[in-house]
Amino acid sequence: MARITVTVNGADHTDEVEPRLLLAHYLRDKLRLTGTHIGCDTTNCGACTVLCDGLPVKSCTMFAVQADGREIITVEGLATGGQLQPIQQGFKEEHGLQCGFCTPGMMVAATALLERNPDPSEEEIRWALSGNVCRCTGYVNIVKAVRWAAQAMQEQAAPEEPATRQPATEQAATR
């Protein structure tokens, strides 16, 4: 057994774990954070994507011991104070899910993209999500959902002047 301390969604957890325990199983079985899905268990599908020190990684392809001292964000860590994050709102508004199984991984991977690139093109979104598989093949609406979130975040970041607010496209042109 190995002792690990991992920060998950802002809270520190110290546990004795078997070295062969996958991070995905640690999150789901030990911490009961079952939002992180295990789709393929073969590193292909991306349903298990979490952020490790801010970067998307596949938690089924990482031992919990490797996360010792790291900061993990799971899909449960996206919303704050009961408020949906723009990416979550975007998936809702644009119907970015059908069966919903891939959705946690998609939203986590998209969160990292928007952190790095607040105004991604469709191509950049598709590239950033290329490690996430949607078996319903709902990619068109997933891309729209990420675009929706990007736009909402830019509007949030813009100065609050509702009376004179410009459409997002004009904001982009004058930036």
Partner: peptide, 9 residues
């Protein structure tokens, strides 16, 4: 190579 998640590790 691989996918974004794997390239990060």
């Amino acid at each position: 190579s691989a996918s974004p998640q794997l390239r990060n590790m």
